[in-house]
């Protein structure tokens, strides 16, 4: 019930300010531009969203922290954390409420990219299950980046610091698994390091999802990261008060 109250407040804060609208428009524009200009959507001659998925982690690693950077840093700087901390409310309800509100913003943002799905269905006969799997993978990446930003923002009262550190962490998680970096590691005969980079990086788990292969390992990877970050947020908020 308290989670629901926090969720509603956060959601209305996203939509009464330009934040949600800005992210929907910017994400929609950039993801389409990247898919057509750099992903070579037309040249691929393929009824799939491969070109669309290709650059999404790069876009999300900046836009997701930009949306969520205020989550706790704002509460810390405006001292409303003191108000929340003296309400009959468990802090994990507040953490969850804020996380779910940001998740819904991204669910709406992703669902508004439906013209891409319509376009490939109009042009050919894509496997819509694979497309659905890609969307699930993208949403899991969004949730993971939201959780990371939530965790980072709990440490600071400065939202710019929260943004920079969150982007850095998300960037690291995205780039460490990028094929170019994995290949560099393999060329340097660091096969074990390359394997570890593949496992800890987001790219491979995301790429598997975009090809219709969401496996248990990937699910555990995403859910594990999200859980660790949210539990960590709760602990940071508690320890800051002691």
């Amino acid at each position: 019930m308290k989670t629901w109250t926090i969720f509603k407040r956060e959601l209305s804060s996203y939509f009464t300010q330009p934040t949600a609208y800005a992210v929907i428009i910017i994400f929609g524009l950039l993801s389409t531009v990247l898919a057509f200009a750099f992903g070579h959507f037309w040249q691929r001659d393929d009824a799939s969203l491969g070109a669309f998925w290709q650059f999404l982690p790069l876009l999300l690693m900046i836009l997701v922290p930009a949306v969520s950077m205020k989550q706790w840093s704002d509460e810390n700087s405006s001292n409303t954390i003191e108000l929340l901390g003296t309400m009959p409310l468990k802090m994990n309800s507040a953490v969850m409420g804020k996380f779910l509100a940001a998740a819904l913003v991204w669910l709406v943002t992703l669902s508004l990219t439906f013209p891409m799905v319509w376009a490939v269905n109009h042009l050919g006969e894509p496997d819509n299950w694979i497309i659905a799997s890609g969307y699930i993978g993208t949403f899991l990446v969004c949730l993971t980046f939201i959780a990371i930003t939530t965790f980072v923002s709990a440490f600071t009262r400065d939202e710019v610091v929260a943004l920079i550190v969150s982007v850095a962490v998300c960037c690291l998680l995205s780039l460490v698994g990028f094929p170019e970096f994995i290949n560099l590691a393999r060329q340097a005969d660091a096969t074990e390091a390359a394997d570890i980079m593949t496992k800890i990086g987001i790219y491979d788990h995301f790429f598997q999802a975009t090809t219709g292969k969401i496996n248990v390992t990937s699910l555990l990877y995403f859910c594990g990261l999200i859980t660790v970050c949210l539990v960590g947020t709760n602990l940071v908020l508690k320890s800051k008060r002691s």
């Binding site: 209305s12 804060s13 405006s78 001292n79 409303t80 003191e82 108000l83 003296t86």
Partner: peptide, 12 residues
Amino acid sequence: YLPESAPLYNDM
């Protein structure tokens, strides 16, 4: 409880 700095959510 009324905290010292009267913290509020400015967007509400």
